Amino acid sequence: MNKMIIAGLAATIIGFSSCCGNSAKCETDSAAKCDSVCEKQPCCQTTPDEIDGIKKALGYYTEAAVKGDSKIAMQGFAPAATMSYAEGDSLVTVPIQVLYDYYDQTGPHKATYEIASCSVAGDVAMVRIESKFGENEFTDMFTLVKADSDWKIVSKVYQPK
């Protein structure tokens, strides 16, 4: 299970660029690999401030992984957030506290990542990351909700490659 939890530590969101904020950017910015949501235009009204808010929440997650400090991650997650993954044929969903405990027990980690897609609709967002933690590779997905002007991660789902 520890290898599965590592996926949570691997998703580092530093270069989050908004394909949703500018559909032309989807076609020209090689750093942004966007899904079809930009072509369909439902999130293209997303403001730079909204994208910055999402980056801020994901940045807490990132910083916590790099520094091995759960207190940092707590700033980016909703109190009742969950983390889910498949183990064999079973779905496992745990409170985000499991990730916090892992941060505190294992300390700092190195990670690489690539943002695979982003989608924003009003006060909800989905972000998919392709990450590498050590030799292990993962797909990580985050659901975020904006409340009281702050974006919070409400769920993290991941899949080892």
Rank of each mutant, 00 (worst) to 15 (best):
K71Q: 13
Q97G: 01
V66F: 09
C43H: 10
K25Y: 12
G107R: 04
A73S: 09
D104V: 08
A31T: 09
I54N: 05
A80N: 14
E50S: 12
K71Y: 00
A57N: 05
A64T: 01
S30N: 10
E27D: 11
I96G: 01
K71C: 00
M74Y: 00
A57P: 03
T93D: 10
P42R: 03
Q75T: 10
A80R: 07
A31Y: 08
A65I: 07
T106H: 15
I51P: 01
K40S: 11
S30E: 14
A64F: 01
P42L: 11
S84C: 12
E27L: 14
F77V: 05
D69C: 01
V66A: 11
A31I: 03
Y102G: 01
D104F: 01
K56Q: 13
S70N: 06
D69G: 03
P95L: 01
T106W: 05
E27C: 03
G107N: 04
E87D: 14
V66G: 06
Q41H: 13
N22I: 00
L91A: 14
A81E: 05
S90K: 15
Q41D: 08
D104E: 03
G88D: 11
E63T: 12
G21A: 15
K67H: 06
P108C: 09
G88C: 10
A80L: 12
I51N: 11
D52P: 00
D89P: 03
G59W: 03
Y103T: 02
S36H: 05
K56F: 04
A86V: 11
S23L: 08
D49S: 14
C38W: 05
E63G: 01
A80K: 14
A86N: 07
C34F: 08
Q105M: 03
G107M: 08
K71D: 07
T62W: 02
I72Y: 02
T28I: 12
G53K: 10
A31D: 12
L58A: 05
E27K: 13
I96H: 06
C44R: 07
V37D: 05
K33P: 03
